[in-house]
Each structure stands twice: as structure tokens, then as C-alpha cells.
Design a binder for these strands. Structure first.
Length: 254
DNA sequence: ATGGCTACGATCCGTAGA
């Protein structure tokens, strides 16, 4: 079973890239972030024609998440229970024997800003939600754009980024708190090329210079981590005309 | 040089992303 996550940065603009990529990569489950469209405008017909069921939580202009799956999707839940939030950042669903949770974690804008405080509150709420979900669903996969580069090796220029949003110690601690629930960063279960990133700035020829961050991740509970045989970053979609600034991350489960 | 792109919804610029 192949699981993927991709921040598409506008599903409307990226639909052709997404359809091409689904056909080429053939994931069984694909978690999408930053749909930037209302549910009424979700391209259900096109995705069904491509062989995917979908559960989605969208909003106009900002945020928006979806889970696509070849198999049936059940027990869909949106948001974080008990955490009131207008922003559509979380959707969970059961696919086969796994619980899949797709997240678009807050950006945080700048350390010390209101959005940064929201980001840390949001991560704390996510942690509590996951603790409860893990007790009900031992086979759990958490996929998404975490907007945190967990270690300096996930940052193209750690010195330039030191203390900045996405790498600050409170954000990294919030990210590590998810691992402390027993989740594994599937990418780090395997030897990986140095300077592996999942996002590159549109400006300054970020992709060509490989000036990126590894902020998109697939975290697996222990039973799923034990079945994981590979985790890779697929840079192909980032090379296309008018790409998303993120590229897909894919893991394979036996 | 503290910018530099892209998407969006509003107009012909501001907000947001990371």
C-alpha cells in the first residue's frame, strides 16, 4: 500500500498536475493540503474518473485538506475535537485497516507573532487529539504539511534559518511531542540522500539552488512503521511549469 | 540588497504563504 502527502497550493490550479501524478505514481492514499477552494468546487468528478474516492474539508482562498483513496473511505472526521477553529486544517478517515489523518499545520508567520502562538496552541491540541486517536486506532498514519523542519539536516542553510519560524525550538519541540506518542518519521527509517527537502521557495530560484526545507512528512504508528519498506520524496512535479512550491512525499507499506 | 514568487480576491494592490 502506497501512502502520499502533497501540499498542492491551489487544487484548482494544480488539478492537471495532480491527475498526471496520480496516474504515474499510483498511490493508494493521497493526502492533499492547501486546496484553497470551497467544498462545492471540489473536483470530485475528475478524481472519481481517475479512480479515487475523496473526503474533503475546504474553504475559500485559504487552507483546505482532502484524503483521496482507491478503496472505500469511512468514519470521516474534520477538525480537532474540542479545538474551535474556522480554518480547515485537519481531516481524518479510515481506509482499509488504517486510520489516516491529513494535516495542514499552521505556518506561524514569524516567531512571537499571534500566528506563531496559534501554531503552538494548535500543535498542542493536535497532540492531545492524536493520543486519543492512537488508543482507538493502533494502525495510524499522520500525513501532511507540518510547517516544521525537525532537524538542521532538514534545512538547506541552518545558519540563515536559525531561530526562524519553521525551525525554532518551540516548534521543533511541538513536532517531537508527536513522536513521543510513538509515531515514527517514516523518512528517517531509511538512509536518505543528503539535502533532501519537500518545499522550495518560489523566489530566488529556490528549487534550482536546492534551497529548501523538509516540512512535509509521513508519521506512522509502530505497527505501520514496522510494515514500512520505503519513504521517498518525488521531486518530479516540482520540475513542471507552474508547480506547487511543495512536492509529494510517498511511503510504501508491506 | 531583508527583496526576489505565486495564488487569491479584490481591483490595477493587499494578504498570505514559508
Amino acid at each position: 500500500m502506497k501512502l502520499a502527502t502533497w501540499n498542492v497550493n491551489s487544487l484548482k490550479v494544480r488539478l492537471p498536475h495532480l491527475l498526471d501524478w496520480l496516474a504515474a505514481a499510483q498511490p493508494d492514499v493521497a493526502c492533499l493540503q492547501e486546496l484553497k477552494l470551497e467544498d462545492a468546487k471540489f473536483p470530485r468528478t475528475e478524481l472519481e474518473a481517475a479512480g479515487y474516492h475523496a473526503a474533503h474539508a475546504g474553504q475559500k482562498t485559504y487552507n483546505g485538506v482532502a484524503i483521496l483513496a482507491r478503496a472505500d473511505i469511512s468514519d470521516v472526521a474534520t477538525g480537532i475535537p474540542g479545538f474551535a477553529d474556522e480554518q480547515k486544517r485537519v481531516i481524518a478517515a479510515s481506509v482499509g485497516d488504517a486510520r489516516v489523518i491529513c494535516v495542514y499545520c499552521p505556518n506561524g508567520q514569524a516567531v512571537g507573532s499571534d500566528k506563531y502562538a496559534y501554531k503552538l496552541r494548535w500543535f498542542a491540541a493536535l497532540r492531545d487529539y492524536l493520543a486519543a486517536e492512537l488508543s482507538r486506532h493502533p494502525r495510524l498514519a499522520l500525513l501532511g504539511d507540518f510547517n516544521v523542519a525537525p532537524e538542521d539536516r532538514d534545512v538547506h542553510d541552518p545558519k540563515a534559518w536559525e531561530g526562524q519560524v519553521h525551525v525554532s525550538e518551540p516548534e521543533r519541540a511541538a513536532w517531537r511531542a508527536l513522536l513521543e506518542l510513538g509515531l515514527k518519521d517514516s523518512f528517517r527509517l531509511f538512509d536518505q540522500p543528503e539535502k533532501s527537502y519537500s518545499w522550495w521557495d518560489y523566489r530566488m530560484m529556490g528549487f534550482r539552488r536546492n534551497a529548501g526545507l523538509r516540512i512535509d512528512q509521513i508519521l506512522l504508528s509502530a505497527p505501520l512503521a514496522a510494515r514500512c519498506t520505503a519513504c521517498t520524496i518525488d521531486k518530479a512535479p516540482r520540475k513542471l511549469e507552474r508547480p506547487s512550491d511543495h512536492t509529494p512525499v510517498v511511503c510504501e507499506l508491506a
